[in-house]
Computed example of a mutant assay.
Amino acid sequence: MDIREIQSLIKFVAKSGASEVKLEMEDIKITIKTGSSVPEATIYQTAPMATAPQVVTQAPVAQPSIAPATPAAETPASDDSKYVTIKSPIIGTFYRKASPDKPAFVEVGTDVKAGQTVCIIEAMKLFNEIESEVSGKIVKVLVDDSSPVEFDQPLFLVDPS
Rank of each mutant, 00 (worst) to 15 (best):
D2V: 02
I3F: 02
S8Y: 09
L9I: 07
I10W: 01
K11L: 08
V13Q: 05
V13T: 09
A14G: 12
A18Q: 14
A18I: 14
E24K: 13
E24Y: 04
D27T: 08
K29Y: 13
I30R: 04
I32W: 12
I32C: 10
T34R: 11
S37T: 09
S37I: 08
S37E: 11
V38I: 12
V38N: 07
V38K: 09
P39W: 10
A41K: 00
T42K: 15
A50W: 01
A50H: 02
Q54N: 05
V55M: 06
Q58C: 11
P60C: 13
V61S: 02
S65M: 13
P68T: 10
P68N: 07
A69W: 05
T70G: 01
A72E: 06
E74T: 04
P76Q: 03
A77N: 07
S78Q: 07
S78N: 06
D80A: 09
K82M: 06
Y83M: 06
S88G: 06
P89L: 10
I90D: 00
I91S: 03
G92Q: 05
T93M: 14
F94S: 00
Y95K: 06
R96F: 00
K97Q: 11
D101A: 12
A104R: 11
A104N: 10
F105N: 01
V106P: 01
E107Q: 11
T110Y: 02
T110P: 01
K113R: 13
Q116L: 01
Q116D: 12
V118L: 05
E122V: 10
K125S: 13
L126E: 14
L126H: 07
F127K: 12
E129N: 15
E131V: 06
E131A: 08
E131M: 04
E133M: 03
V134K: 03
S135R: 00
S135A: 14
K137W: 04
V143E: 08
D144Y: 01
S147Q: 14
V149E: 05
V149A: 09
D152R: 08
L155K: 01
L155R: 01
F156Y: 15
V158M: 03
D159M: 10
